[in-house]
């Protein structure tokens, strides 16, 4: 039946610890103490996850990622999270902040309201440790849509594309594969990795599938559509739109999926 129960050892039952920081020495403003409630899990230890509280001065902190780095630097070096570019380009620091998936590096402290800030890993993914999730399946699904140019032309120099043809890729190629969209989608939670190869590819992979379907230089449209013509791979999208509302790059995967469905219907005529 419906899987409503959580996997073993995944409920937050362990007692969380509290850490209290001091006023930031580098800040010349009045201290602004804020509490961050961070999901802590170490599956290897066999213990259940817990939520630890960290109170730090954020008077000179602009982004949530900066706050996380301050917590790791000054209070608890064991807090584990991915980060790299700190400017919304690499997609490493995707996590669930105050209930919505986003990039910690582009989420401003001024967008977090005035209360505590809750930070959890991306939903419904296996947790490696704390805020780090295992995205192997997600990357597999991206690979499955063959995200590369397949052209039968072999031009002497470059493949020529008009401005109009190029513009069709705007809003599609910018995806950084942070997984915020797919892991915010309830249909992806339930069907992203179902059984017997029945799996919903999720908004991120489908956005990229559409990116290659829209590419004037690509000659494999028909084969790409054949692969997607499946009740699970494509048609598990029930237009929930969580993907579009959380995308930290402001892209619209839901529209791209609708575009694929439109291409399917036009092809079937």
């Amino acid at each position: 039946m419906v899987e409503l129960t959580l996997p073993r050892n995944s409920k937050i039952t362990a007692k969380g610890k509290s850490y209290k920081g001091e006023k930031s020495p580098s800040s010349d403003k009045a201290p602004d103490m804020r509490t961050f409630k961070i999901y802590r899990s170490d599956p290897d230890s066999g213990e259940n996850p817990r939520v630890d509280s960290y109170e730090i001065d954020v008077s000179d902190v602009s982004m949530v990622l900066d706050a996380l780095i301050r917590i790791k630097d000054t209070l608890d070096p064991t807090v584990t999270f991915r980060r790299s570019c700190r400017e919304g380009v690499c997609g490493s620091c995707a996590m669930n902040i105050n209930g919505a998936n986003t990039l910690a590096c582009t989420k401003g402290m001024d967008e977090c309201g005035s209360g505590d800030v809750a930070i959890y890993p991306l939903p419904h993914q296996p947790v490696v440790k704390d805020l780090v999730t295992d995205l192997s399946k997600f990357y597999e699904q991206h690979a499955a849509i063959e995200p590369f140019l397949q052209s039968r032309d072999e031009p002497e120099q470059e493949h020529i594309q008009s401005h109009e043809q190029r513009e069709k890729l705007d809003g599609l190629y910018e995806c950084i594969l942070c997984a915020c969209c797919s892991t915010s989608c309830p249909s992806y939670w339930w069907n992203g990795d179902k059984d017997d190869g029945n799996e919903y590819l999720g908004p991120a992979a489908l956005l990229q599938a559409y990116r290659w379907l829209q590419d004037s230089r690509d000659d494999e449209k028909s084969r790409r559509l054949d692969y997607l013509d499946d009740n699970f791979r494509l048609y598990r999208c029930h237009t929930i739109f969580n993907c579009t509302s959380v995308c930290p790059k402001g892209l619209n995967p839901a529209e791209a999926i609708a575009g694929i469905k439109r291409m399917m219907v036009e092809r079937a005529k």
């Binding site: 013509d229 009740n231 699970f232 048609y235 399917m264």
Partner: peptide
């Protein structure tokens, strides 16, 4: 049940 999603979608 899994294949040919488009026919299902149109129907």
């Amino acid at each position: 049940m899994a294949k040919h999603g488009t026919a299902h979608f149109i129907a």
